[in-house]
Write a protein that binds this DNA or RNA. Sequence first.
DNA 1: TAGATCAGCGCGT
DNA 2: CTACGTGCTGATCTA
Length: 380
Amino acid sequence: MDRNTLVSFGQMLTERIAACEQAIFGYAGGEFNINSTKQLGEVLFERLNLPPVKKTKTGYSTNAEVLEKLADKHPMVRQVMEYRVLTKLKSTYADGLLKVIGPDGRIRTTFQNLVTATGRLSSTDPNLQNIPVRTELGSEIRKMFVPRPGWVFVDADYSQIELRVLAHIAEDPLMQEAFRTGRDIHTATAAQVFGVPPEEVTPLQRRHAKAVNFGIVYGISEFSLAEDIGVSRYEAKAYIDSYLDRYAGVRAYMREIVAEAKDRGYVTTLFGRRRYIPELKSSNYNIRQGAERIALNTPIQGTAADLIKLAMVRVDRALEEAGLQAKLILQVHDELIVECPPEEAEQVRAIVTGQMESVAQLSVPLVAEAKVGRSWYEAK
DNA sequence: TAGATCAGCGCGT
DNA sequence: CTACGTGCTGATCTA
């Protein structure tokens, strides 16, 4: 870990947080604990009389979605949004990671192999599976994850592993065809759902198709899809209907896996990992619906977990057998990170992606892509 | 009053 | 009313 840069980053955050605080206290007409959702709710909805958007079971909701809706109604709201971003980075990442840098300057996580319901690993003390990547400021943290002096990272990702697993398990000819011909799956899906040639798919159509693909894996409802992509419920329903008309194998899979789960009481992954789902028999509709989504998602997420675990064993062995100094150091669900001397990097890249792609022969290709870099940020 | 637990929130795949 | 996790802070409960 680049400790010095992390310390500076933390100091920068401290300054920006202080500025946010002053602005917020100015708008509020006094000091309060901004971290307290209770106090913040009182200021926003009772002192400033902003319209409550949503409630939690204990009071007003003040989450990011709510703040977004209120952002144009009072200048304090955007300051609170910025405050949340900055304090999250400071407490969880800047301060949090500084505390766990070892005497040798390295950070080591603990992987839990028997915690998750689906077969994934989890990572604790610190969790290295949730390091920021989506925003520019957050991803600064990744620049501070660096290999030992003179070495590099090789970062390999599975491409669309869950949708490939779905295409395989559901035996869906159209989805399999899309992957076999190496097409962009979201563009291919958009072309199907919207009935246009792939080259005429607009960025918005692709974004919507991506959300549908994403949602299908989790057993989405038209309601939440509509919410997610900002269309009417009817439009969302039309997307899902059209999707399942085209990807008929997926529709059949969704029906069959739930029926099988109700019959047996459990679902399994491709490698036989089993998850019992007693909630399928609940008298509560919402519980039952949730259980059906679990029945749908677990074989997909769990099979992907099985695949990468097997790949980890093979990558580790292959690096050793090649006589390399390279070491597998991290897994993030669909991503493996190896540390090695720069002269090994190209060979490591070939070995890691090769092992990941050949770990199992499914009805669609498994594809892994790797990059080399002098930090986690660079290698991703 | 200190520690445990719950609640809300937000980070990742 | 979308799957799976970890961990932070504040509020509340408990011994």
